[in-house]
Amino acid sequence: NLFRVAGDMSHLASIFILLHKIVQLKSCSGISFKSQLLYLIVYITRYLDLPWTPSPYNFIFKILFISSQLYIIYLMARAYRPTNDPNLDTFRVEYLLGFAAVLAVLFPVRYTVLEIFWAFSIWLESVAILPQLFMLQRTGEAEAITAHYLFALGTYRALYIPNWIYRYVTEPTHKIDTIAVVAGVLQTVLYSDFFWIYYTKVMKGEKFKLP
């Protein structure tokens, strides 16, 4: 449906915005390496079913997400490493990994390796942006392009919510993927005050600056 496709396109756009920023400005300043590494873990643990993906649409996106995220990690860890300031990126990701691991082991859809990793990736994705938001809070401002990246990334998960409602209403089975929905709503809520500042500042041509 339209919400789902727009969400996935927004997700892909966010990655291209981030790559564009890093390559054009030859800098990854303002970007949390920890958040990016968490996203790589998210894609790898979620797409373990890659060889058995029945839908060409999903298959292509999975390849795109894993490969572009690997490239981002390469750029941040190797090519533009000196522009990356670890002193600003101090969020304790152990807590996020622990949170996702505990929920994944306690409440998977089924007790299989793939399902536990899938649930882990969903919970981890819901909080993976926290090191990035924490970094923004520490520096107090961000380049416009970084704000656009975060806006596109947040829009992706926000659009999945009307997608789930649409699917619930239109599909005869009326099934709800509880883990995905609860984690998806949590993820969207974490973006809410970023969205507000983006709307009140960046969309009106001002610098992204925290009050």
């Binding site: 997700h11 079913d49 058995w52 839908s55 999903n58 899938w118 997608n163 993927d177």
Partner: peptide, 10 residues
């Protein structure tokens, strides 16, 4: 609809 892994979203 047949879904191998059961999760058809990204």
């Amino acid at each position: 609809k047949i879904m191998v892994g059961g999760h058809d979203e990204l």
